[in-house]
Design a protein around this nucleic acid. Structure first.
Length: 280
DNA sequence: ACTTTAACCTGAACGC
DNA sequence: TGCGTTCAGGTTAAAG
């Protein structure tokens, strides 16, 4: 489900929801496979009694900073949802996978129809060196993410630029929706080999990736199917999309019909006139 | 060593 | 109505 703007919106919601400074009283796991680097028993024991200090984002991961130098790291993958609810909620429980009960009689519930999400626990001084986190590149909103950083990441890559933008070791946070939007604004054909991009094209990717992600956060993320940042709210950026999901629609710049192709297995939308490269 | 594909899963949408 | 196929916001183990 979520890319950087959706994860950031969920984190902003949780951080302002009254969840901070609350303590876990009980953790109920209904789908054991979601717990990745320990047993369910260790997972619940690790968390119960700890208080949530704050939540931050690294790439598409949510990092819960807890008391006693503990950290809980969650990835929502395709369909994960985190809602902070009253215990008596009328939200359907069909896909309820984990409940984090708080001492204030509310509960943080994790829903996930496909069960792709991941949960890891670490000590505070260890998570940055964990295999899941240490390989992540900067995200586009990091001030250090600039032309030189991206050029360095792409200069030896023969992958299609669309594929390279989805590779979280080149740049983190971008997913399938925003990659299409960024490449459209940058006027780059999605199958262009990364190491053949001009400096201007790389500069455009840097500029537009920052611009698109910031605007998407402002609109609460993109709901193309099921994403919600709380029980009652979807994103609004889907109304701003220029090419993604727009197969057959006129290009907003030149009116040429938007095409849909597959790039490394991912549906990819682009304008064949605006996004040309060399003989492509 | 690097790139591409298959697999992980469920459920919605589509074609026949 | 029903059944088979394709597709979906992501990542990674396996295969090439």
């Amino acid at each position: 489900m979520p890319e950087l703007p959706e994860v950031q919106t969920i984190i902003n919601t949780l951080n302002s929801s009254g969840l901070l400074n609350q303590s876990f009283s009980k953790v109920s796991v209904y789908k054991d496979k979601l717990i990745k680097n320990t047993t369910v028993k260790n997972f619940t024991n690790f968390l119960v009694g700890e208080t949530i200090n704050n939540i931050e984002r690294i790439g598409k991961y949510l990092v819960f900073h807890l008391t006693n130098k503990k950290a809980l790291i969650i990835h929502l993958r395709m369909e994960g949802k985190l809602f902070y609810e009253p215990i008596a909620s009328n939200y359907p429980r069909t896909h309820l996978r984990i409940e984090f009960f708080l001492k204030n009689n509310r509960v943080l519930r994790y829903y996930d129809s496909r069960m792709f999400g991941t949960f890891h626990i670490f000590k505070e001084d260890e998570y940055l060196q964990s295999t899941i986190i240490k390989k992540l590149a900067l995200d586009p909103l990091d001030e250090q993410f600039n032309f030189n950083y991206l050029k360095d990441a792409l200069k030896h890559s023969t992958k299609a630029i669309k594929t390279a933008l989805l590779d979280q070791t080149n740049v983190s946070g971008i997913g399938n929706i925003y990659a299409d939007e960024i490449l459209f604004l940058s006027k780059i054909y999605p199958l262009t080999k990364s190491n053949t991009l001009t400096d201007t094209q790389i500069k455009n990717i840097v500029i537009y990736s920052k611009q698109v992600l910031l605007k998407a956060i402002k609109y609460g993320g993109t709901t193309v199917s099921s994403y919600k940042w709380d029980i009652n709210h979807s994103g609004r950026y889907q109304d701003m999309l220029l090419v993604h999901t727009k197969k057959g629609c006129p290009c907003p710049v030149c009116k040429t019909k938007i095409l849909k192709i597959k790039v490394n297995g991912r549906g990819t939308y682009f304008c064949p006139k605006c996004q040309k490269n060399g003989g492509n």
